[in-house]
């Protein structure tokens, strides 16, 4: 899976950052191959944003090395910025400027010549479906349109590495799908993408994932490998009373975890064959008659909970 050394787009070694007594990021190592869509996944406070900011050279690490496209981000922050693009979690463009003005401004800051700026912004606006709105103020755009605009501004100088901090938070599902279509296109063009996300369905689209917890990378692999590495087997129990079902199965022998997933409960057990009848009985005991138990494919969320839940979180 690991790419050749000369194809590594982002390399991180021993990266650490503390805020006062809080150790936000602890001794992280990472290697992202060129053309990858690499995902940082973790709960709030896991250190995702801090890592992204350090990669983008807007926050200085306490210790460690970052190489982006071969440039030392810590020592040569300004040169590295020419190779990468960063989209902060909070919308960072000017709401009192129009779409076109924002794109033009960022194009100029990245040193894109005027003619090229016009051609490229035209092309990007068209691809994102924003061309008709180019004279609209950024502040009057929907969440999804804002994110697309952010992406266009980030892409105006054709960066080699794209850093996206929770790019689709607060964006409607249709816009999210469009957004991902653009990302896949970029990857085709050889752009390396590092993104953080709190959405598990998005994590699943990444080529590789780093599961973050307490400022550390706990696991780092492809979504498939991570799912395969999940200990135990997964059962889905469908019922009109999922909360009661979870209540009924929690703590029963062989049950490693129970997770509420909408109208279903995902239960992780040590041995599916043996536990299905036991669980069925336990649920029936609670007077729940409509429960249907089926083996299920684990999603990243299940893997995440399974892999991180077993370890004790670090005390800060």
């Amino acid at each position: 899976m690991m790419a050749e050394v000369n194809e590594i787009a982002v390399r991180v070694h021993g990266l650490s950052k503390s805020f006062g007594s809080v150790r936000a990021v602890r001794d992280i190592d990472l290697a992202v191959a060129q053309g990858e869509i690499f995902g940082l996944v973790g709960p709030d406070g896991a250190g995702k944003t801090t890592i992204m900011r350090m990669l983008a050279a807007v926050l200085r690490p306490d210790a460690g090395e970052i190489l982006v496209d071969g440039v030392d981000v810590v020592a040569e922050a300004e040169r590295a910025k020419l190779h990468l693009s960063y989209m902060p979690q909070r919308f960072g463009l000017y709401e009192d400027l129009t779409i076109a003005e924002n794109i033009f401004f960022y194009g100029a800051l990245f040193g894109v010549p005027r003619g090229e700026r016009i051609a490229r912004s035209q092309e990007l606006l068209e691809a994102a479906g924003l061309l008709p709105f180019r004279r609209r103020l950024a502040g009057q755009l929907s969440g999804g349109m804002k994110q697309k605009l952010g992406l266009i501004c980030a892409l105006i100088h054709t960066p080699r590495v794209l850093l996206l901090d929770e790019p689709t938070t607060g964006v409607d599902p249709v816009s999210r799908r469009d957004f991902w279509a653009i990302l896949y296109n970029l990857r085709e063009g050889g752009v390396t993408i590092v993104l953080s996300t709190a959405y598990m369905d998005e994590a699943e689209r990444c080529s590789r994932l780093a599961l973050l917890h307490g400022g550390e990378i706990r696991h780092c692999d492809t979504p498939q490998h991570l799912k395969a590495a999940m200990p135990g087997a997964l059962l889905a129990i469908a019922s009109a009373h999922p909360r009661d079902v979870r209540e009924a199965v929690s703590g029963k022998p062989g049950v490693l975890g129970a997770l509420l997933m909408g109208d279903r409960v995902h239960v992780r057990v040590d041995d599916a064959e043996r536990r299905i009848p036991e669980l069925r009985a336990a649920i029936a005991d609670q007077g729940i008659a409509d429960a249907v138990i089926t083996p299920a494919e684990p999603g990243i969320e299940d893997v995440f909970v399974a892999l991180l839940g077993e370890e004790k979180p670090h005390e800060p």
Partner: peptide, 11 residues
């Protein structure tokens, strides 16, 4: 307004 983070990420 949160525009600084984006601004300082440019050269």
């Amino acid at each position: 307004r949160g525009t600084m983070e984006q601004l300082i990420s440019t050269p």
